[in-house]
């Protein structure tokens, strides 16, 4: 019998029980990198709208300020600050991995945890700095 080809074999074993798969920090950082990217893509159009009204004149500039200090913008700002911080730090980690820095499993695990810790601290700090 020829060996099974894992790409075409329809009877290959598949294990996708999400409750029982264990996600190492590297996997969580990777999924978070995607989620935060998508979140920031969603913010591009609203941000462009804010940019537009802020430059439409002194009244528009004041209006943009009001929108930004409202509760919805504060909440969105918190999410986006955390997203930006994570995406930036995780991105730097990937650029380093690209050039083989921190590529071994133990280091990669530690750097993934470091990225997530730094992201929470820097994200909250950024939000605090911008809105408090």
């Amino acid at each position: 019998m020829p060996p099974r080809d894992p790409n075409t074999d329809q009877k290959r074993p598949v294990f996708l029980d999400l409750r029982r798969i264990r996600f190492p920090p590297q996997a969580i950082a990777s999924i978070a990198h995607r989620l935060t990217g998508v979140l920031m893509i969603l913010a591009i159009l609203p941000a462009t709208w804010l940019f537009a009204i802020s430059l439409s004149g002194p009244a528009g500039f004041a209006r943009a300020g009001e929108v930004l200090t409202g509760i919805p913008a504060r909440l969105a700002g918190l999410l986006l600050a955390l997203a930006l911080a994570h995406h930036l730090f995780a991105g730097i980690r990937y650029l380093l991995l690209d050039i083989d820095i921190g590529i071994n499993r133990v280091t990669a695990r530690r750097s993934a945890l470091l990225v997530m810790g730094l992201a929470v601290i820097a994200g909250l700090g950024l939000w605090w700095g911008l809105w408090a």
Binding site: I41, I44, L45, A47, T48, F51, A52, L55
Partner: peptide
Amino acid sequence: ILAGWLLGSGIWFGAILLEV
């Protein structure tokens, strides 16, 4: 939708920047 979202934002942003 993604392409429209990005291109729309980009063109809008560029138009404002040109005006300023």
